[in-house]
C-alpha cells in the first residue's frame, strides 16, 4: 500500500514535470492535441459514413452505435493518457535505460508510465466524450438509476481494463522486447472492435473478447444492458455489472505479470 502511494507520488511528480516542460511550447501542444482529436475523430466519420447507407448496423441505430463508440474511445483515451507510455518498455530494456530507473527511489512501473507524459493525448478523450454526450442525449432509453450509475462505472472499469492490457503488454516485453505491436493490436485494435456492435462480428470473435481478453466488459455488455438488448452470446444481462470485478481481477493479474517480468529481468539481466 505504501508502495502504491509512493508510485502515485512519483507518477504525479514526473508527469507534472513533463506537462510543465510541454507548456513551454504551447503552439506545439495545441497542434498535436488537435491532431489527436482529429485522428481519433476519423474513425467516427467512418461510422457516420456507414449509417448514411444503412439505418441499422448490427441491430443498433446511429445514436446507439455512437454510445458504443463514445464509451470505448473515452475509456481507451483515459488508459492511453495515463499508461500509454508503457509501450516503450521493450525499447528501454533494449537500450539499457531501464537500469537508470532501477536506481531511483520510486517504483519502476510508475516511472515508465509517467515518462514523457503527453497531455496532448487528451484529444482522444475529448473526442470520445463529445460523441458520448451526443449519444446519451439522442438514444431512446428508459433511464433507471441503475442505468445512469452504469455509465460512469463502465467508463472507469473500461479504462482500468485497457490499462491492465497496457501493463500486461509491457510485462510481456520484458521477454519479447519488440512486442510493442502486439500490445497495440490489443489496445487500439481492441478499441476498433468495440466501436462496432458485437452483432456484426462472428460469434467466435465476441466469445474471445468476452472470455479470453475480456474487452467486452469495457462497453459491449454494459451498453447492451442500457439499451435493453440481449447480447449475441445469450449471456445473462447481469454480466454488465461484472465490469468492475473483471477490471479489478485484470488489474491484479497485470500487477502480478509486471512483478514477474521485472523479477525475471532483475535475475537475468539484459
Amino acid at each position: 500500500m505504501a508502495r502504491a502511494l509512493d508510485g502515485l507520488r512519483a507518477y504525479r511528480l514526473i508527469a507534472a514535470m513533463w506537462i510543465r516542460s510541454a507548456a513551454a511550447y504551447r503552439t506545439s501542444f495545441l497542434v498535436t492535441a488537435i491532431g489527436s482529436f482529429t485522428a481519433s475523430g476519423l474513425s467516427f466519420a467512418a461510422i457516420l459514413l456507414m449509417f448514411s447507407h444503412v439505418e441499422v448496423l448490427g441491430g443498433l441505430l446511429l445514436p446507439e452505435a455512437a454510445l458504443l463508440y463514445g464509451t470505448s474511445n473515452t475509456a481507451l483515451g483515459l488508459a492511453d493518457l495515463t499508461l500509454g507510455n508503457m509501450v516503450s518498455l521493450g525499447q528501454r530494456v533494449r537500450d539499457g535505460t531501464l537500469n537508470t530507473l532501477l536506481v531511483r527511489p520510486a517504483p519502476v512501473l510508475a516511472q515508465v508510465a509517467a515518462d514523457r507524459f503527453a497531455l496532448r493525448r487528451i484529444g482522444r478523450i475529448g473526442q470520445g466524450a463529445l460523441v458520448l454526450i451526443w449519444a446519451l442525449a439522442q438514444v431512446d432509453v428508459a433511464w433507471t438509476p441503475l442505468k445512469i450509475l452504469l455509465v460512469p462505472v463502465m467508463l472507469i472499469s473500461g479504462a482500468a481494463i485497457f490499462g491492465a492490457v497496457y501493463i500486461v503488454g509491457a510485462a510481456f516485453q520484458f521477454c519479447a522486447q519488440d512486442a510493442a505491436e502486439v500490445q497495440n493490436s490489443f489496445t487500439y485494435g481492441g478499441n476498433a472492435l468495440l466501436q462496432y456492435p458485437p452483432a456484426v462480428f462472428a460469434k467466435e470473435v465476441v466469445w474471445g473478447a468476452t472470455f479470453v481478453i475480456p474487452l467486452a466488459f469495457v462497453n459491449w455488455l454494459p451498453v447492451l444492458y442500457i439499451l435493453d438488448r440481449g447480447n449475441p452470446l445469450g449471456l445473462p444481462t447481469w454480466l454488465a455489472f461484472a465490469a468492475p470485478a473483471v477490471a479489478t481481477a485484470l488489474c491484479a493479474a497485470a500487477g502480478l505479470a509486471w512483478r514477474a517480468g521485472l523479477r525475471g529481468y532483475r535475475s537475468a539481466g539484459s
Binding site: N99, L102, V103, R263, R266, S267, G269
Partner: peptide, 9 residues
Amino acid sequence: IKMLTGILA
C-alpha cells in the same frame, strides 16, 4: 555494480 545498486539480484 548492477548487484550493488539493486538492479540485478
